[in-house]
């Protein structure tokens, strides 16, 4: 199993654990890019999805945006942005945000739109204000679906952030591209394994988040 051998060699090499090119620093960079992009995407997708889902309008437009955004090749967009904007975080953020917005936006829209209207009607009838209805009734019930969209976006962004290194930025993708350039297969495979691990770890993180924030009444009824 040469693959495992390479991975093992990469992780047991002490030199990979400190310094500017060490795993902790690259990991921090990687997470910083990923979560900045996710933060921006959530800031765009969540409110927009809540509003459109709440009013039930714009579903066709959203489907169109989602398809168009998926049609754009992320790597191509990155290269284009790099060419137009130069080295920096912005050219990396744009394709990552474009990648993350559709799943967040579309699931939020669907979650709110398909939420059972009866509890909302009951809440209004009991004298709950619109803000309270949104945050105390609609959101808690739509949460599992919204979280699944955010998780989907997170996994895709965390794994795609690797390509930032293609245009000279940091992150764990550095190992892959540097390794390919130096023909050092150990580093390439080690970096790839790290990114895959990180993305898979996100599934675990979201599993925990769901257990923490989603009411058992909503979480368990779907079984």
């Amino acid at each position: 199993m040469s693959l495992l051998h390479y991975i093992n060699a990469f992780f047991s090499d002490g030199a990979h654990w400190h310094g500017y090119d060490g795993i902790p620093h690259r990991l921090a960079e990687h997470l910083q890019y990923s979560f900045t992009a996710l933060g921006i995407a959530a800031a765009i997708g969540l409110p927009l999805g809540l509003i459109t889902g709440h009013t039930g309008r714009g579903g066709n437009a959203l489907a169109l945006i989602a398809t168009a955004a998926r049609a754009l090749p992320t790597l191509g967009l990155l290269v284009l942005m790099f060419i137009w904007l130069g080295i920096g975080e912005t050219p990396v953020m744009i394709p990552l945000v474009a990648l993350a917005v559709p799943p967040i936006l579309v699931t939020t829209y669907e979650a709110v739109r398909t939420a059972d209207p009866a509890p909302v009607d009951a809440a209004r009838g009991m004298g709950m204000g619109p803000i309270a209805v949104l945050f105390q009734v609609e959101l808690p019930m739509a949460l599992p679906l919204i979280l699944s969209g955010v998780r989907s976006a997170t996994i895709q962004v965390v794994s795609t952030t690797a390509i930032a290194a293609y245009v000279s930025l940091g992150g764990l993708g550095r190992y892959i591209f540097d390794g390919l350039y130096q023909r050092n297969y150990e580093i390439v495979v080690g970096g790839a394994a790290l990114i895959a691990l990180l993305a898979v770890a996100m599934i675990g993180v979201f599993y925990l988040v769901e257990r923490l924030v989603v009411s058992p009444g909503v979480r368990l009824r779907r079984r």
Binding site: I155, S159, T160, A162, I176, Y185, V188, A196, A199, V200
Partner: peptide, 17 residues
């Protein structure tokens, strides 16, 4: 879900060997 989480670039380089 786990397979989907593996980045394409990582998947590619795993297979080069």
């Amino acid at each position: 879900t786990v397979l989907y989480a593996i980045p394409s670039i990582a998947f590619f380089v795993f297979l080069i060997d």
